[in-house]
């Protein structure tokens, strides 16, 4: 029984690096898209992922975006309710609670606008604040708790090239994590690319009220191994490449999307810890305030 429990724990540690932070598709991030000053965007993104060994993660990623000036945008992301589950020693254990909060600042450093097109580049800096619950279920590894308990930083560069009929975007970044209770979740390099193609309407003459896009995105993650009390935790870290086909419905006020998160390449350290699939819904609504620069 103890052996099965240990085996289960090792398995849990093996995939833990991927479950709490699955793909950040462009749908989950605005890239370098224009955000008007005073524009407030609220976004909710329920997401579910499933991996080998009975691991699953279900959470609601909520994002608040605020255009402080034509070039400066603030983003606050909180993984509000997280349930991470794992099969440990034949028992299905889970940890449910609130996650961490990521505060990010984006500043557009390059902007080239044309009629019906825009090319923008923006660096992003962010800080992960350990607002989440990191000791919900002691039978699960620290990386499977809803919150990491660790401060972190995120540095990225993002670019978007958008036209009336297609949008392309890319983002590359690095997330560094601090230790929390002598446990360190491996630092991560990530790279995302996305392409959206207008399906409907075929004509954009006059005032267009809504549009339907097909989307195809890809997310690459390379994580260092986790460490506990300074020693590398076996079976952690690795690389994961996801391909995400999806569909987006957007209006002046709202956007809704559905995206599948499918593994294309995996080199995850743990045996049996393969990432199987994920799905993400996406709701977005715009608001406006006169409080801005």
């Amino acid at each position: 029984m103890i052996a099965r429990l240990i085996a289960g724990l090792l398995l849990a540690l093996g995939t833990a690096a991927f479950l709490p932070a699955p793909a950040r598709a462009q749908l989950t991030f605005p890239g370098a898209s224009p955000i008007s000053s005073g524009n407030i965007v609220l976004r909710a993104q329920p997401e579910a992922t499933e991996a080998g060994g009975g691991f699953s993660s279900l959470f609601d990623r909520n994002v608040l975006i605020y255009g402080a000036s034509p070039d400066l945008t603030f983003l606050v992301q909180n993984n509000s309710i997280i349930t991470n589950s794992a099969d440990v020693g034949g028992r299905q254990l889970s940890a449910t609670g609130f996650g961490d909060t990521l505060f990010q600042t984006r500043y557009t450093i390059f902007q080239q606008d044309g009629i019906g097109s825009t090319l923008r580049v923006a660096p992003i800096i962010g800080i992960n604040v350990p607002t989440g619950m990191n000791a919900v279920n002691s039978a699960l590894s620290p990386a499977l708790q809803p919150g990491t308990g660790a401060w972190g930083t995120r540095d990225a560069i993002t670019a978007s090239w958008q036209t009336l009929y297609w949008n392309g975007g890319a983002e590359a970044g690095y997330q560094a994590n601090s230790d929390a209770s002598s446990y360190h979740i491996g630092n991560t390099v990530y790279a995302d690319v996305g392409f959206h193609y207008l399906l409907w309407p075929s004509s954009l003459e006059g005032q267009v009220g809504s549009e339907l896009y097909a989307s195809l995105e890809s997310n690459y993650t390379s994580s260092d191994a986790n460490a506990s009390f300074g020693r590398t935790v076996g079976g952690t870290g690795g690389q994961l490449l996801l391909i995400d086909p999806g569909i987006i419905w957007t209006t002046t006020l709202y956007s809704v999307s559905f995206t599948a998160l499918l593994p294309a390449y995996e080199r995850i350290a743990a045996d049996g810890g393969r990432y199987n699939y994920g799905v993400a819904l996406f709701f977005r609504r715009s608001f406006f305030t006169d409080l801005h620069w």
Partner: peptide, 9 residues
């Protein structure tokens, strides 16, 4: 620079 209905908001 405007490319979609959402961007017109």
């Amino acid at each position: 620079g405007v490319v979609s209905p959402y961007a017109t908001f």
